[in-house]
Design a protein around this nucleic acid. Structure first.
Lengths: 159, 159
DNA sequence: TATTGTTATACTCTATAACTATA
DNA sequence: TATAGTTATAGAGTATAACAATA
């Protein structure tokens, strides 16, 4: 008694409170994030730079000398997966591991001179990308508002 | 403690305009999205439900009868990858493909009776997850604000 | 010819366990 | 014993090409 079609009267009652996906924070967050990463990848495709690599270069550029595991942890990257990422940056001559003084197990991470030049070009390109995003949001005020709201998710205000 | 520091004189001039990663929209967006999906996966782990499956069930629950490729496209899922996802839902008895009338190539997607019951339970669990998120944001007003800002990224207001 | 669903496949990202050399 | 870095590996998620049935 398999039916291939059903009339409305035969259909069991559908859930009444099904929200539009557009009203679900996680869904919109994912769609927006995919859009931003896609724009990022189109913007940085010529420089062969991925989002994770961008974040590593920006972090050790601002705060050089941190240990490899510290950097990975701050970026939410498992230290095992960070190795190949750092290998790539080192192979391209952009960043380097130095033996940390005092602890022979650990490496401290730094930009090379070439890496510093690369990061300067990278930031110029990044400004185009970020401007495109800010324009879509409606302006700097909206960007600041978005940053604040996103921050509350990861670091909720105690109340 | 004797931290491994470097004297400024040894360091080549660093890029001057390197922003904190916390001020980069794409970075915070990614971190926030990862937090939400992690909370989602912890919340729905017992139901063996992934975010993509949630979105499919919610979509065909609200709008049954759409063609398989239409559903996939609305969710930003490649039709080739949608096949296995739909196979899984069908194997679990939650959703089904029906032969579409008129076009023998296409399938129209529907929830089963069991699927409807499942979705009702799913929405109860989802409310917990969403409440946790709204609490972090600070309330419904903040949630609405966030939804609006995220929507501008994907569907920018023409101006 | 074009489209729907499908298969096969490859590539990236992520997660875990286990090894090594130091501590 | 514990930790930093590493290797190996497996699992998701995602992207593309090509095919059969149908339009």
């Amino acid at each position: 008694m398999a039916k291939t079609t059903q009339r409305a009267s035969e259909v069991p009652p559908l859930p009444s409170d099904l929200p539009d996906l557009g009203a679900i924070v996680g869904y919109k967050l994912r769609r927006a994030q995919l859009w931003v990463f896609q724009d990022f990848n189109e913007t940085f495709g010529r420089m062969k730079l991925r989002p994770a690599e961008f974040s590593v270069l920006a972090l050790i550029g601002r705060n050089p000398g941190q240990k490899q595991t510290e950097v990975a942890e701050q970026l939410g990257i498992k230290r095992a997966n960070f190795v190949a990422l750092m290998d790539g940056l080192e192979r391209r001559g952009l960043a380097e591991r130095r033996k940390a003084e005092g602890d022979k197990r650990s490496h401290s991470l730094h930009l090379t001179s070439e890496g510093i030049a690369f990061v300067n070009r990278m930031m110029k390109v990044w400004h185009d990308h970020e401007k495109r995003l800010i324009d879509r949001l409606g302006g700097m005020a909206e960007r600041d508002l978005l940053l604040d709201l996103l921050d509350r998710i990861v670091n909720p205000p105690s109340r």
